[in-house]
Amino acid sequence: MDEVDQRLISALRHDARASLSDLALTLGVSRTTVRGRIERLRRSGDIVGFTVVLKGDAARDPVRGLMMIGIEGRGTDRILRQLNGLSSVRATHTTNGRWDVIVEIGTPTLEEFDEVLARIRRFDGIAHSETNLLLSTRKSAN
């Protein structure tokens, strides 16, 4: 994937409905080049689909956040099962680096969000955590 492909993907992330003409103008290439690159990126699996973000998707959970969790010992599988059993947990991701797990949380109110955080922090094996509230969503994979 070269720099033009990366710029194309960036433009599509910003507006997946942009016309081929607009994309060509933005990238400084022909419409034929844009069409060919999109098709090649789809065939190679680099682009797996396009999506729409509905107002209802963002309104479902007025309070949303990401909780990064550090786990001590070998309790990751158990903790993931506990997390996935919580109705406010929208997704769990294992990762590398400082944090072992990143949890996407959504609740109707800030008070409920705080209750979920407190409950998760009490799970046996959680060594430390950090939480960030999501203020707005520009694009969602849903």
Rank of each mutant, 00 (worst) to 15 (best):
I120W: 13
G65L: 02
L41P: 12
A18N: 05
R64E: 14
L135M: 09
I69S: 02
T26F: 06
N84M: 04
A127N: 11
L135Y: 11
H128M: 05
G106R: 01
A18K: 12
D124P: 06
L135H: 05
A24K: 09
L110R: 07
V63R: 02
I71E: 03
Q6I: 15
L80N: 09
I38T: 08
S88M: 04
F113G: 00
G75T: 08
G65R: 01
T107L: 00
N84C: 02
R40V: 07
N142G: 12
M1Y: 15
R31T: 10
L80M: 11
S21F: 01
G28S: 06
V103Y: 15
A24I: 10
A118N: 14
A127D: 14
I71G: 07
G73T: 14
I105L: 11
T94N: 07
G70D: 09
R74S: 13
L80H: 02
V101R: 00
S140I: 05
M68L: 08
T95I: 04
R13H: 11
W99I: 04
R35I: 01
T107R: 05
V103P: 13
R43K: 14
S136L: 08
R64V: 06
N132P: 00
G73P: 07
Q82V: 08
V116M: 05
V48W: 01
N96Q: 11
L86G: 03
A118Q: 15
L54V: 07
I102R: 14
T94M: 07
S129A: 11
I38A: 04
S136T: 10
L25D: 07
G85N: 10
R31Y: 02
Q82C: 08
I102D: 04
G45T: 10
A127G: 11
S88Y: 03
L20S: 12
R17C: 06
R42H: 11
E111C: 03
D77F: 00
I9D: 02
D114Y: 15
V48P: 00
G65M: 02
I47K: 03
V89A: 08
N132Y: 05
R7M: 14
Q82M: 12
L20Q: 13
V101W: 00
G75L: 02
D2A: 04
G73Q: 11
T131M: 08
V63I: 14
T95S: 15
D61K: 01
L54R: 13
A11Q: 09
D22P: 04
F50P: 01
L86C: 05
R13D: 14
T32Q: 12
R43V: 09
A141K: 07
D61M: 00
G49Y: 15
T107W: 06
R60Q: 14
A58P: 00
G125K: 06
E115N: 14
L8Y: 08
R60I: 13
G70Q: 13
